[in-house]
Simulated scan of single mutants.
Amino acid sequence: MSTEAAPSTSVESPMRFRHNRHQNIRVSHDGTVARRVNSSFFSRGLVFGTRPVKANERVTFKLMEVTDNLGAFVYVGFTSHNPDNLKGVTCQHLATHSGYWSWFFPKDLCTQNTLLFFYLSAEGVVHYGVENEEKGAFDGRVKQAELLWPLFSIFGNSSAVRLVDAPRGAELRPKPNRKLVPMKLHSTHSRNVRVCKNAAQRLDAKYSQGYVFTDRSIKPGEALTIQISPGLKGRFAGLLHLGVTSCDPASLDSDDLPDNANCLVDRPEYWVLICDFSDLNCNDEIGLCLSETGQIGFHVNGSKFKGVVHVDATLHLWVFLSVYGTTQPVQLLTCPEQVKDEEKECVVCYDNVIETALYRCGHTCMCFECAVEQWQGKGDGHCPLCRAVIRDVIKLNK
């Protein structure tokens, strides 16, 4: 008869791995280490936590055993299924069955004995980081109507994971809710989209000419939120162009706009294509903010950083969207709070601050050394955010 203690369900107890001898995993006696037994089965390394997580509670871990010949990988995520009731579940269930949410932890962070963490925010966004520093958020959202257990799939040449107890009080506190108010869309729009106040609905079976504009120019210090298919359910591979223009929509003949939004920069007015978003899902949110000096920062689902673009702040700038693919509908909200310039980390090395702008796309996302390497070296001359061809690297004066 097994003397193994029943898994604790107390949210105050330390997070541990659940013992499960029916899989290719062995868990240490104290529950802190999970090891894949048969290394020839690279994908049979599924293991669950012993209790549900709290909102903003960090799940912290290290990769203990990593071989050098191939990359180390680990899936992390959550399930709404109580692991006590699961039998015969495999890694394939993570992608094909409901009630599972999982992501590859970024490969460049998966080095041996590096302290990694992830956590679920109160809004259902899963954030991740390394050595007590946030690095971003995974795509999509987790449904929070039920209890959620953390899960790991120890994959590839990472064969053992150790859970690390976070220090007392290390749970992240949610930020105060901002007051969002609807931002009206302009009556001028392209032919394949309907506009009603702050919402735009692209016509069914029409996949281009979905341009909409804000009813007024954006103010310096203002933040916008773009909600994708709010209130709907399901997952899809939605697409959205986002940018700003000095062209007053009231003076615009929308029939003159190109099907391909990338061609907008060839028009005589000032058009800046900030980002071409892909793989959007229902209830995703894109945030955009304009600082007093013309720095536009944008992110997805509250992640710490997605990108920065510098624009001409002396102009009146309207925000525009091109709703295409399977994205529909969208709505705009605004938060009239002051937005300040911040020193952001280079998206390549994560060590130096951003100090360059790329010509012609305008993205400011790298330090000078990484930008030159991206332009003339291993980056093949393409912007890491939008994949536009880099024509030149401009060092910013601060």
Rank of each mutant, 00 (worst) to 15 (best):
E12I: 05
S13I: 00
P14T: 08
N20C: 11
R21V: 02
R21I: 12
H22I: 03
Q23L: 13
S28T: 12
D30T: 04
G31I: 14
A34N: 10
N38W: 10
S39H: 15
F41R: 05
R44D: 15
G45R: 08
G45V: 13
V47P: 05
F48V: 04
K54V: 02
R58P: 11
V59N: 03
M64S: 01
T67K: 08
A72I: 07
V74M: 11
G88Y: 11
V89M: 07
H93D: 15
P106G: 01
L109G: 03
F117V: 00
V125D: 03
D139L: 05
K143Q: 08
Q144D: 02
L147N: 13
L148D: 02
L148M: 07
L151H: 01
S158F: 00
A160Q: 12
A160L: 04
V164C: 14
P167S: 13
R168A: 11
R168I: 07
A170K: 08
E171Q: 11
R173M: 07
P174G: 04
K175L: 14
P176W: 01
R178P: 06
P182A: 03
M183N: 10
H186D: 10
S187D: 12
R194C: 09
K197C: 09
Q201I: 12
K206F: 12
S217A: 15
I218T: 11
A223H: 09
S229G: 05
S229A: 15
G234T: 05
R235V: 08
F236S: 12
H241Y: 15
L242I: 12
D248C: 14
V265W: 03
E269R: 10
C275W: 01
S278D: 14
N281V: 09
L290A: 04
S291V: 00
G294N: 02
K304Y: 07
V308F: 06
V311N: 08
D312T: 00
T327Q: 09
V330C: 14
V330M: 02
T334Q: 14
E337Q: 10
Q338N: 11
K344R: 15
V347D: 01
V347F: 12
L358T: 13
R360I: 14
C370F: 10
C370A: 06
A371V: 08
Q374F: 06
G379N: 01
D380H: 13
G381T: 13
P384W: 06
C386T: 04
R391W: 13
D392P: 04
I394S: 04
I394C: 01
